[in-house]
Design a protein around this nucleic acid. Structure first.
Lengths: 201, 201
DNA sequence: CCATGTTTTGACAGTAGCTCTCACTTCATA
DNA sequence: TATGAAGTGAGAGCTACTGTCAAAACATGG
């Protein structure tokens, strides 16, 4: 999704400006911290005016709040072979998406997460997004099992899955390392435990 | 918890000021909306200065972000008879706490929730709190089953439970009614479904 | 190539949340 | 009642964010 067709000059410049703002913002956040970095500094580094900054990102927070992967995961779930459990369908879907990221996308994602893990207000908004994704996930899982979208059971399962992911994600400053590749394995392990809970009596 | 012993005059005045600020803030939020209400207005209505407002509440958000019930629920869980499942232990604990609230506390809680359900930034911070409570819940559940606090299984179960609660809570503006007594029944039903998922094969 | 209209941008002013300082008042206590 | 601590108010200052308006960059038809 990062690279659409070149299209007109206007579009290209826009994409360039947007990328410049985000890159400089990420760099400044890493160097000075999130709170200590002002929008003016970012704008100056990216060589645009403050107005332009807010035209591209409604708030300072939005610079690192963009998450483009959820829809991809939903599609990957639907593409899973029938008959496997909701949890496995999700895990496979996540694998499909994350293991196909380019090194640049992976690195950018890592930097993003490293920052918002450290800033409570950002974490809060990411969680808000994540929880809002329960709807999408519930629909996708129900779809995969050929059940109606509003089946409460799938809403519960989706909620449980998201809850487990939140539970094992490095929140609350447990270790200040941010999101490493190994953490994805942690998420998989936790979901495996959930799957076992769903299986036994 | 609202009414401690009277203690000294200073303590009483402090509690009174705090209550005044919060009450006027709630009223103004209900009348004009959260964003449209300025801290100055709240301060004026409560007859204190802006400085004093921020001395009692670090941010405007904090006025409606106080949640005193989680620790009570944790205690109620520990007091449950042994042998029942984690989910049931939690549901019983929640019942114990909520059904013992005074009408004033219940009403105040209802107003609080009605407001933050409508304001995304507030919802985000409430979720942050809620997710942070996974730690406490996991420890309480493990404790109840006589297992060590860092048992990953209980972390997963706690995460699943909290996820389910978030999933059925009226987020994302599904119906603008706020949190009604009936919604607690919804939460119980959803957790019942989770319990069933945990039970079958 | 040029004139036209649209989009993007920058400068500027203004609002409000939040912090900090400092002097003044109110309360506790010895 | 004297002394110190805690609570308060006034005001200045920083920054995120919004809105307006005119200039510049770009697209398009002739």
């Amino acid at each position: 999704m990062t690279s659409s067709l070149p299209a007109g000059l206007r579009e290209r410049k826009k994409a360039k400006t947007r990328a410049a703002i985000r890159d400089h913002a990420l760099r400044l956040f890493e160097e000075q911290g999130y709170a200590a970095t002002t929008v003016d500094q970012i704008a100056e580094a990216a060589e645009v005016s403050q107005s332009t900054f807010f035209r591209y990102f409604p708030t300072k927070e939005d610079v690192i709040l963009t998450d483009d992967y959820d829809p991809l995961i939903v599609e990957a779930i639907k593409a899973q072979p029938p008959g496997i459990s909701p949890v496995r369908a999700l895990v496979n879907g996540m694998r499909t998406v994350f293991y196909n990221l380019s090194p640049e996308e992976w690195e950018s994602e890592r930097r993003r997460q490293a920052i918002y893990q450290l800033v409570p207000e950002l974490r809060a908004r990411v969680m808000n997004q994540t929880v809002s994704a329960i709807d999408m996930l519930a629909a996708a899982l129900a779809d995969h099992d050929g059940k109606p979208h509003d089946d409460v059971t799938y809403r519960v399962i989706a909620g449980a899955i998201v809850g487990v992911i939140l539970a094992v994600a490095p929140l609350g400053g447990r270790d200040g390392e941010g999101f490493q590749p190994s953490d994805f394995a942690e998420v998989e392990e936790a979901l495996e435990i959930l799957e076992q809970q769903f299986r036994r009596g």
